Computed example of a mutant assay.
Amino acid sequence: MEQEEREERWEERSLNLLEDSKIDQEFSEAKLKKKGRKKHKQKWMKRPTAVPEVILEFLDEDLRENALRALANFLLDRFEENPEDYFQAGLFLFFSCSTMALLLYEVVDFLKKMSSDMEITLRSTKRLANVLTLFQSIAANKEIRRQFIMTAIPNFLMPIIVEKSKFEVVEQVRPIALSVIGILCQGRDSDVIMWATRNNVVNVCHASLKTGSELTKVIAMHILEYILRDTYGRSFICDPNRAILESLVDTWNQMVVALTDDRDLSPRLLFHVLRCYVLLCVHPRGLSLMVTSLPSEISGNAVADISEEFPAIQSLRCQLLNIGTEYTPTKTDGERYIER
């Protein structure tokens, strides 16, 4: 019970902040009935001047930790209740004096702990999670999204996502760090997608698929889908001069095999793998590889059984099983369920 609630809480701070994560939540609710919890309300934060006042407290090292926590909790509440406040806070954070430098300092301080033998405590991971929540609000604001990537601050999140650590608590912040990249990429901004491909995001997502938790893997799949939906991103992954396509497909195929062998099969992870297969078929090289390399498990009983329960999976499965016959998926087919 405690483990389930902890996983749900981290999903609220990462996956659920992606615009098209509704279907993931539906999969989770079908698999595990959510337990209701009362959110901590901070009425004083609703004052017009509260957000700027809290940001000013970042300048005081003694007040910073509590200020980070207060603003992060406020943003998580406002994301659902009043998105306008959420986006406005991103502007305050980005343009207020010294704030971005202080937030970057918090990230660098955590990275120093990861690269040394210093103990990483639950308290320090929660502090970083609060910093990442602020970055999420900046990444979600389309007015400053490009400026945010130009600061190179998102690049400092890559080691948090992929570097090994002997402390288990680090696993809790990896999906939140990855979700910042996901929120940046979900805006369908070609410049952001180009930044992602040129700054190793595809390889970071690929590494997350191999070693990350289920939540981290799902967010990584979201990012790969955003890249595949973009013409430049799709051409980048399918470029014959790079070994990305074959390597990714091999990993996805292994995931399908592992998922079908697992009695506790993850429908949302399977859904995202199938959706990436369909998106690949929009590109001639991707289609060619799908015709020859689609795992046989997709036509097997395990996937057929889960398809009966989830129509979205059934539709993608039918499209893939018809590849190479009279039917070829189109770009519209690949994006069909992304709008949900």
Rank of each mutant, 00 (worst) to 15 (best):
Q3T: 02
E5G: 03
R9G: 04
L17E: 05
K22A: 13
I23C: 05
Q25S: 13
S28P: 04
S28Y: 10
E29G: 02
K34M: 06
K35E: 00
G36I: 01
R37I: 09
H40K: 10
M45D: 02
R47C: 04
R47I: 00
T49M: 03
E53N: 13
E53S: 14
V54N: 00
L56H: 15
F58D: 00
E61G: 06
E61R: 14
R64G: 09
R69H: 12
L71T: 09
N73G: 13
L75C: 10
L76A: 12
F79H: 14
E80P: 04
E81K: 14
A89Q: 04
A89R: 03
L91Y: 03
F92P: 01
F92E: 10
C97H: 13
E106V: 05
E106I: 07
V108M: 13
K112M: 05
D117M: 09
E119F: 09
L122F: 07
T125M: 04
L132Y: 00
A140H: 05
E143D: 09
Q147N: 11
F148Y: 00
M150Q: 12
T151W: 04
L157N: 07
P159A: 13
I160S: 06
E163A: 15
F167T: 12
E171H: 12
Q172V: 13
L178E: 03
S179G: 04
C185Q: 00
Q186E: 11
R188I: 01
D189E: 05
D189H: 01
M194W: 07
W195T: 00
W195E: 01
W195C: 04
A196C: 02
T197E: 01
N199V: 01
N199Y: 01
N200M: 06
L215C: 02
L215G: 07
T216G: 02
T216L: 15
A220L: 06
H222C: 12
Y226H: 12
L228Y: 03
R229G: 11
Y232E: 15
S235W: 02
F236E: 11
N241K: 09
R242D: 08
A243T: 14
S247W: 04
V249D: 01
V249R: 06
D250I: 10
T251L: 05
T251G: 08
N253C: 12
Q254F: 09
L259F: 03
D261C: 11
D261M: 12
F271C: 07
F271L: 11
H272R: 15
V273A: 08
C276N: 08
Y277R: 12
V278S: 02
L280D: 00
C281H: 05
P284H: 08
R285H: 12
G286F: 05
L287K: 14
M290N: 12
S293V: 03
L294S: 14
P295F: 06
S296N: 12
S307A: 13
E309T: 12
F310K: 04
P311V: 05
Q314T: 03
L320C: 07
L320W: 03
E326T: 15
E326K: 15
K331P: 02
K331D: 11
E335I: 10
Y337V: 14
E339P: 06
